[in-house]
Structures are given as C-alpha cells and as structure tokens.
Simulated assay, not measured.
Amino acid sequence: MSSTYILHYFDGGGRGEPIRWLFAYAGQDFVDNRIELREWPLMKPKTPFGTLPYVEVDGQVLGELGTILRFLARRFNLYGQNPWEEARIDEIMDFVKDRRAAYPRYVQAVFFENQPEMAAQAKADYIDQAPLTLKKLEEILAATKHGVLVGTQTSLVDISVAYYFYTLERFKKGILDDYPTLRDHGSKIWNSDGIQKWLRKRNLSFW
C-alpha cells in the first residue's frame, strides 16, 4: 500500500515549493493543503515548530524544510547511492541555502509585511549573491562529468538547485545566459514531465 503525503504550506511558492517540486519530479501524488494567511495565527501553535512547511506522512508529522526534503528524497531514491554522495548533496544544498537567504526575506516583505523598500533590498541582495554562487555550481557540475551535481544520476540537489535557478530567472530574466551549462542543467529539470505537469496546474497566489 502506498503512503499518503500531505503538505501544509501557504498558497504560494516560498519554502513550500521545493517540496512540491520534489513530489512532482518523483511522480508522487500528494495533498497540497494551502493555508490562508488569516488562518495562520490560530494554526501556528499546532505546528511542530511554529513554522511552515510541515508534512504528514501516513499520519506522522515532520517539520523543517531541509529535514523534509532529505526524508522524501530517501524515499524516492533521489538521495545519492552511498553515504559519501549523501554528504555531498547536503554540502551543496547548504552552500546554496546560505547564499539565498535573501529570498525568504523578499517573500516576508512582499506577502506578509507589505514593505516594498525591504522587498526591493532583498531582491537586490538575492541577485547580487548569484554570480559567485553560480560560478561555484558551474565548477562543481563540470567536475562531475555526468551532467548532474553529485554522482551519476539526478538527485535532490539537482532538483533543489533547479528551483533556485527558476527563482533567479523570475527575478532577473536571462541571469543564467552567462552560465550555459547551468542553464541546460536547470532546463532538464524544468522540462521533465513531472515538473512541467506541476507548473501547469500549481496556480499559486504568489511565488
């Protein structure tokens, strides 16, 4: 019997969207429970750590984005083929996470606090961080020689990084033009059947 998955997050992209992309790429059905902002104050104390997203898996509750992604990736055979590859996946994901910290600030400023000046600064910071991040990812990708960031097959880190590229392109169209190998890498994920199906139907209030 297959497992039942429920994702709890706001009606937007933000921190919930990488989980949706992972479900979509894996071809795994899930319930996308979208929380309205007016519901959040009452719901917050009932969540595992007072934050979203969290998931329910066969009735068991799991919070924290990174933990959720790793748990699901293991289940979907998208977390490397040995402990070393798992560690490399974590390493690269932590590297990117540290350098995209401005994105949550942007989402917070735009959709929760209505602070356009803060949003503009967060957007600028996000774009300014990109070149050094993209250069390092380009080096990592070139070194593997398999068209993926770790090992010989697509894994969680490829999907997560492709979503990072996707948000960058939303902020600044053409930002990947100087990084053709990364653009091609992202395109393989974006154009996969699962992700394309998700992008056509997701209908989010904000991204």
Results as ranks from 00 to 15, higher is better:
167 T>L: 15
155 S>N: 04
146 H>E: 04
165 F>Q: 02
102 A>V: 03
118 M>V: 12
86 E>Q: 07
130 A>R: 10
163 Y>E: 15
134 L>N: 00
125 D>A: 03
84 W>T: 02
43 M>E: 07
45 P>N: 12
77 N>T: 12
98 D>R: 06
147 G>R: 03
149 L>K: 06
76 F>V: 09
138 E>S: 14
64 E>Q: 14
131 P>H: 06
182 L>P: 03
94 D>T: 08
70 R>C: 15
42 L>E: 03
72 L>H: 06
42 L>A: 08
83 P>K: 05
173 K>P: 10
42 L>M: 01
59 G>S: 09
49 F>K: 07
70 R>D: 15
156 L>N: 05
117 E>K: 12
106 Y>Q: 01
64 E>P: 02
173 K>E: 15
123 K>F: 00
133 T>E: 05
101 A>D: 04
44 K>G: 05
69 L>Q: 04
171 F>K: 02
49 F>W: 07
77 N>K: 14
129 Q>H: 09
47 T>L: 00
59 G>T: 05
95 F>I: 09
67 T>P: 06
69 L>H: 00
122 A>L: 03
68 I>V: 14
145 K>T: 13
58 D>P: 01
103 Y>P: 08
157 V>K: 05
128 D>Q: 05
68 I>M: 08
119 A>N: 06
135 K>W: 04
91 E>F: 15
88 R>H: 13
121 Q>L: 14
131 P>L: 14
70 R>M: 14
78 L>D: 01
153 Q>A: 13
182 L>Q: 01
132 L>T: 10
122 A>N: 02
115 Q>Y: 11
64 E>F: 04
164 Y>T: 06
175 I>E: 04
136 K>I: 07
